[in-house]
Amino acid sequence: MKRYLTAIFLALSALILVFGLRIDLQWTGIVTWGLTLICLIFAAYYTKYIPDEKSKKKRE
């Protein structure tokens, strides 16, 4: 499950940007970009759980 979290957080950040920037309220832009940045940091963190096919082939 952890290997899919990168894709989930990337998709979530895109959805936050699309819907957050359409809302025209005060401070919406700052909140939207802040949440997007947090999602991208989590996505970068969970890339270490993506399996590496090259290293798997070298072991065999």
Rank of each mutant, 00 (worst) to 15 (best):
K2S: 08
R3P: 00
Y4A: 06
Y4T: 08
Y4M: 08
Y4E: 10
L5F: 09
L5G: 00
T6I: 09
T6H: 11
A7G: 10
I8K: 12
F9T: 06
L10P: 00
L10Q: 10
L10R: 09
A11H: 01
L12F: 13
L12T: 15
L12G: 07
L12R: 06
S13N: 05
S13I: 04
S13K: 12
S13E: 04
A14Q: 06
L15C: 12
I16W: 04
V18A: 11
V18I: 15
F19H: 05
F19Y: 04
F19I: 14
L21D: 02
R22S: 10
R22Q: 11
R22K: 12
I23Y: 07
I23N: 01
I23H: 04
D24R: 15
D24L: 09
L25Y: 11
Q26R: 15
Q26K: 14
Q26L: 15
W27L: 13
T28F: 11
T28Y: 04
G29S: 03
G29C: 01
G29W: 09
I30H: 05
I30E: 14
I30T: 14
V31G: 08
V31F: 11
T32E: 02
G34I: 02
G34S: 09
L35S: 03
T36H: 01
L37E: 02
L37K: 02
L37F: 12
I38H: 00
C39K: 03
C39M: 05
L40F: 07
L40S: 06
L40M: 10
I41Q: 06
I41D: 03
I41H: 01
F42I: 13
F42E: 09
F42N: 07
F42R: 05
A43V: 06
A43W: 01
A44P: 00
A44R: 01
Y45G: 02
Y46D: 03
T47N: 04
K48G: 10
Y49N: 06
I50A: 08
P51L: 02
P51T: 05
D52Q: 07
E53P: 03
K54I: 03
K54D: 06
K54C: 02
S55R: 12
S55D: 12
S55G: 04
S55P: 00
K56H: 07
K56I: 05
K57H: 04
K58A: 13
K58V: 15
K58F: 10
K58G: 00
R59D: 09
E60T: 11
E60H: 12
